[in-house]
Deep mutational scan, measured.
Amino acid sequence: NQASVVANTLIPINTALTLVMMRSEVVTPVGIPAEDIPRLVSMTVNRAVPLGTTLMPDMVKGYA
């Protein structure tokens, strides 16, 4: 099973992502692959992402 990116904290809308905000976890449904974490750093989220939420491609500006 592939690990996905999961919010390690509440990420407010329009926040630039940092490494400490994200962790990898095997979850269903599958979200952004964990190997993309380095690429996500400094990208911003377009909605509030609660703790434990899987990051989906449409949640990160410029990812999809």
Rank of each mutant, 00 (worst) to 15 (best):
N1K: 12
N1V: 09
N1T: 14
N1S: 15
Q2H: 14
A3D: 05
S4C: 04
S4Q: 02
S4A: 02
S4H: 00
V5G: 02
V5K: 02
V6Y: 02
V6L: 08
V6C: 04
V6Q: 03
A7Y: 02
N8V: 13
N8Y: 05
N8S: 11
T9K: 15
L10F: 14
L10K: 13
L10E: 09
L10D: 15
L10N: 13
P12D: 07
P12Q: 10
I13R: 15
I13S: 13
I13V: 12
I13G: 09
N14T: 06
N14C: 05
N14H: 14
N14E: 10
N14I: 03
T15Q: 11
T15L: 05
T15G: 06
T15N: 05
A16G: 08
A16Q: 15
A16V: 14
L17I: 08
L17M: 07
L17C: 02
L17V: 04
L17N: 00
T18F: 03
L19I: 08
L19E: 06
L19R: 14
V20F: 15
V20A: 13
M21E: 03
R23H: 10
R23Y: 05
R23M: 06
R23A: 10
S24E: 10
S24Y: 05
S24N: 06
E25N: 10
E25R: 13
V26Y: 14
V26K: 11
V27E: 02
V27P: 00
P29W: 03
P29S: 04
V30H: 12
V30E: 06
G31E: 00
I32V: 07
I32W: 01
I32M: 03
P33A: 10
P33I: 10
P33H: 10
P33N: 10
A34R: 07
A34Y: 05
E35S: 13
E35D: 11
E35M: 09
D36W: 11
P38R: 09
P38L: 13
P38N: 10
R39H: 09
R39G: 08
R39N: 10
R39P: 02
V41K: 05
V41S: 04
V41H: 04
V41N: 05
V41W: 03
V41G: 01
S42H: 13
S42E: 08
M43I: 03
T44Y: 12
V45I: 08
V45N: 02
N46M: 13
R47C: 05
R47L: 11
R47I: 14
A48G: 08
V49G: 01
P50T: 11
P50C: 05
L51K: 09
L51A: 13
L51M: 10
G52E: 04
G52A: 08
T53S: 15
T53G: 09
T54N: 02
M56L: 14
P57A: 14
P57Y: 09
M59Y: 13
V60N: 02
V60T: 01
V60L: 07
K61D: 11
K61T: 15
Y63V: 04
Y63F: 08
A64M: 15
A64W: 07
